[in-house]
Every structure is written in C-alpha cells, then in structure tokens.
Nucleic acid binder design. Structure first.
Lengths: 229, 229
DNA sequence: CAGTGGTCTAGACCACCGG
DNA sequence: CGGTGGTCTAGACCACTGT
C-alpha cells in the first residue's frame, strides 16, 4: 500500500471539500499525519505545502496548519501568442500590417513605461485574422531606447509580437483586462460599428528594469476569456 | 556557504532571462548541478521542479531538462469577494438587494448547469456599491435542487455570494470574462447609459458534481482587472 | 537498454513565533 | 521556551522514454 504525496493531497482535499474539515479548522501536525499514513514526514510536508500554495491551507510555524478561513480564489489564465490561440481553434491564421512608423513617445507612454523625455518609439498597428475574419487588433509601441534594432525590422510578414518573443523571450509583464467601446480605428480594423463593446487587454513588458513595449489588444466583439479553478 | 533551492532557482532563472541559456537549450542533469553547487540532488530537483511549474523549464525523463522553447505565459488573478475587493480600495462597501424570486429555471440555464427539466431556481439581483457609487451589478441564479434551504434565506442584508461562500466554501468553478454593452437593467443598476461597454464576469459553480449557482457580474464602466507575471 | 527525472525515507538542524 | 513547519542530506528504488 503505497502512500504517495498525491494520495495525501487527495485525502486532505477531500476532507476540506466535503466539509469534514471546515474553514479555520486546525489540522494534525506533520508528524502525526506521517504516522497515521505510515510514511515519512517529508511526504506529508510536500502534500501540505502544495495544498497551501493552491490556497486551501494556511501554514504557520508553531501555530500549525489550518484550512483557510476565506478560500483564496485564484484563477490562472494561459496567455498564448495570438497565432497559437487562433490555430488552436482550428482556424487559419493571417497577419496584416496596417502601419509602422517611428515617432516621439507621447507623454502618457513615457509615464507608463518610465521613458526619458525625447524618447522615441516604433508604433506598429496590425490585425490578426482567424479564417479571414478579424480576431484581434493590435496597437503596439516599442521602445527604441531598449531595442534600436527594431527600426530595421520589417514587420510586413512577421508580427511584432512574434519578433519580440524571440528577441526578448523571458521578460516581466504587467497585464490588465477591461472593456472599451470601439473607437473609429478599432471599428474599422475589426469590422464592427463604433461604440460596440470590445474586450481589451493592455500589456507592458520590461526586461532587466528597462521598458520594452506597451501594447493594446482589442478582441473581436463577443470574445471571452475562460478558465476553471 | 549555504546553497538553498532558492539560490539555485535564482541562478537558473538569471541564466535564462539574461540569455545565457536560450529557449530550447539543454541544461545539465540534476546530478551534475548538485556537484557544481555542492548540495544534494533533492535540492536541485526542487529548484528545477518549481521552475518547470512556473513555465520556464520543460522536463522529460531520459531527455533531460530544457528551457521552454515557447515561454508559457500564465497569468494568475485573485478573485476576491466583492466586499473585500472594495474595502481593499479603501472605500465603504454597501450591499443593495434589488429582487429575489423563485422561478422555473429557463432553458439556457438548465443547459448551462445541466439541470433537469422543471428544475427550480432562486434568482437574486443585487448591487454592490463602493463609497455610494455602483461598483458591480450581480444577476444570480441559485439551484434549488442543490440548495433548497436558499428559499428560506433572507438576502436583504447578506449578499448571496457571501452566503454561498460560507455554505459551500470549496467548490469547482468555471469562470469567463468578456465585454458587453450595458442592457437596460444593467444601465439602470450601474447608473450609466445603455450600450456602454462593461466588463463582465460569468461564473458557474459546482460541488461534488452538482450545479450550485450561475452568476453574471457586470462591473462599473472603466473597471480593469490587473496582474503581473 | 540505460540514463534521466520522480519520489520516498530516515534523520537532522534550524527559524520562527505562540503561549 | 519549546513546538511547529522549512529545509537539507545521503541514499535508494522506480518509471518513463530516447536511443
């Protein structure tokens, strides 16, 4: 009878969800559970530690382990590249460049990315289609302070997102989601009426403390982002 | 010179983000790294295992450990109770019940929650205010099959969300986010014009395979959900 | 088949913090 | 202060899977 840390996790999770151990309740110590399950303390430790990471338990030295009084609800969303997202739907992906120009970084962007006055940026506007219909409109600003080589890039066939992904693969990201009424540009790009409600993501990316890019992604009307937890 | 699993994580993470180890690159085996850092294999194992969970590494038996070719971007959002969310902003929370009535579950809800024909539900509509201004409009359906005791509850002062949280604290949830134009009811409850873009969450909750509740939460215009990763 | 990661063990020392 | 969780060790066996 093998007692793995997964068995113990399942056992404890079961007791919590079925109500045997109510929110706030104190669980037995690791040593006692190890004896009860006939395994090493390290095994119990891993089980409980992971359940704590998942938000079901609260652990404190000396105080012991308790069922979280207020369930910590945490949802995880995968943020795939647009092309992957579209192809995962079984649709044909197409990329269309609308415009690409070097400009002086506007004030709001300098504030947002902490850029110096006079900083310059590359602004790229493009659309991602799924089966020929607009799926996502992208309005991106790339800091030419951090990535001067972006000037020489040709974004006619490769999206700026894909290029950045291979140039700066691992970076720090701040992302936020909201709803906006489509402005004239977005309405044109997505083929909808002005004012229609759009799901919009905003993402700022940093690498080693330096701002890389800021992007606004407006999704086609009706888009939903879904997950379980 | 203490080498903890955190040190090793930081070390490896650094090599990945600074580009020394590029996407797809093969890392040394656990045994070699253990020797290199002068620690036990278990310590290296924990460091690498956690980095894999975080999406930076890909591990396969026999094949070894590699830097993920395509960074797995995963964002985590906390989903607090509305009251906590509002009070965390430093605002005063207020709850207002708009209506509460027992009804036959409409077809779309029966499909959504897998309810039997003729199933009955409690429909509760309410508003959550922050500093006196509407923050979130809630339109909730509670399955009376699963929770007949909801019939006798008085939701005049306690929100249905808070009651459910203490009645069924740990459940399975499916959640999705999108943008909608405010309908007449939502416009009235949130004090905005019809058609204004609203950020909307939909949540279906299950407990031991049985549907508990379905809720639509429409946030005040301009609301954004933010995180880092 | 053989090499890699996955997991368990028995024991140890330590840091934190509640009583 | 002393009990609890946090972490490390040295060793072992096993499961998967590429070659």
């Amino acid at each position: 009878m093998a007692t793995t840390f997964r068995d113990i996790k399942a056992e404890i999770r079961g007791r919590i969800t079925d109500g045997s151990w109510k929110p706030g309740a104190l669980l037995p110590g690791e040593l006692e559970l190890a004896e009860r399950y006939g395994c090493a303390r390290a095994t119990v430790n891993r089980a409980m530690r992971e359940l704590a990471e998942e938000g079901l338990l609260e652990r404190k030295r000396k105080a012991g382990t308790r069922v979280r009084a207020t369930p910590l609800r945490e949802a995880r969303f995968e943020i795939p590249a647009v092309q992957d997202e579209i192809e995962a739907l079984g649709a044909v992906y197409r990329y269309r460049l609308i415009s690409c120009a070097e400009v002086a970084a506007p004030g709001w962007l300098r504030v947002r990315l902490d850029l110096a006055e006079g900083a310059r940026a590359l602004r790229v506007v493009c659309v991602h289609d799924a089966d020929g219909a607009p799926y996502q409109a992208e309005d991106r600003w790339i800091s030419l302070t951090a990535l001067p080589e972006a000037r020489t890039m040709d974004f006619a066939n490769v999206g700026p997102g894909a290029w950045l992904l291979e140039t700066v693969p691992y970076s720090d990201v701040e992302i936020s989601f909201g709803a906006v009424g489509a402005d004239g540009t977005q309405a044109g790009l997505l083929g909808c009426a002005e004012g229609v409600a759009l799901f919009q993501a905003e993402r700022a990316t940093w690498w080693q403390g330096q701002a890389i890019t800021y992007v606004r992604l407006a999704f086609r009307p009706g888009y939903r982002m879904t997950t379980r937890y």
